[in-house]
Design a protein around this nucleic acid. Structure first.
Lengths: 121, 121
DNA sequence: TAACTGTATTAAGAGTGTTAGTACACTTGA
DNA sequence: TCAAGTGTACTAACACTCTTAATACAGTTA
């Protein structure tokens, strides 16, 4: 279901959060469908259940999933998720533009790169 | 000369690296001009000399400054620095575009944001 | 020579990420 | 009803990184 990248320096729980969001955004996991249990995913990824629990707790805090004690974790409504992701992206793009301006990269250069990366899919 | 942001979660030495590059990119520090000594900057920022040393060592590794034992640290040629910064920016922008695509943000939307942030300076 | 430079080393503390083990409450199906 | 599965909580331990502290040594300069 998910593959971890051990070359990635970010903590495991952050990767799990990101991958789960991706699966939901891609429609692989639909609204109200059940996620693998904490222990099951931990086994699957060969990591500790506590680490999965941390990721799930954060996903719940963000409203991406909801938890029912004794039953499991389920995908929350996906309506707002894409908008949330877009909002999250803005400050990051703002920082990148600042960096570009410091390096004297023109708006045209920047946009050319954007178009290039967009076309790469 | 430099101000640290303690709200920034990044390590201090990374902030020092970034701020020094900014000063060089802005032309405040010219080629071959001397940087504050390790101990002086440490005093100025109220941090440990080892932390400054770590930042300076990394700046030297990146070719941004050069060090002369007993004399001090000096700004290396700034010619390539802007190009380096541009190159560093590309993979970051690529990741951001991927994120945008996952959230169904169109190229047009993305570029509109870029233009907006560019005009904000 | 004294005072400044960079550089290296070791030790300690704080914080974070991860694992391990255990425990408890809830739900479900046989 | 009961066993197995669920989420959740807690403590302890370990590793790693960041930072500080205290020295020490070598080179440069006035």
């Amino acid at each position: 279901m998910i593959t971890l990248d051990y070359a990635d320096r970010r903590p495991i729980y952050e990767q799990v959060i990101e991958k789960m969001k991706d699966l939901i955004l891609l429609g692989v996991l639909e609204t109200d469908s059940q996620l693998p249990s904490v222990r099951e995913l931990a086994m699957d990824l060969s990591i500790n259940p506590n680490t999965v629990q941390r990721a799930y707790a954060e996903l719940e805090r963000q409203g991406v999933i909801y938890c029912v004690k004794g039953r499991g974790n389920f995908v929350a409504g996906t309506d707002g998720l894409k908008d949330k992701q877009k909002e999250e992206l803005k400050p990051q793009l703002s920082e990148l533009v600042k960096k570009a301006q410091k390096a004297d990269m023109t708006e045209e250069e920047f946009i050319t790169l954007v178009k290039q990366f967009y076309s790469e899919q």
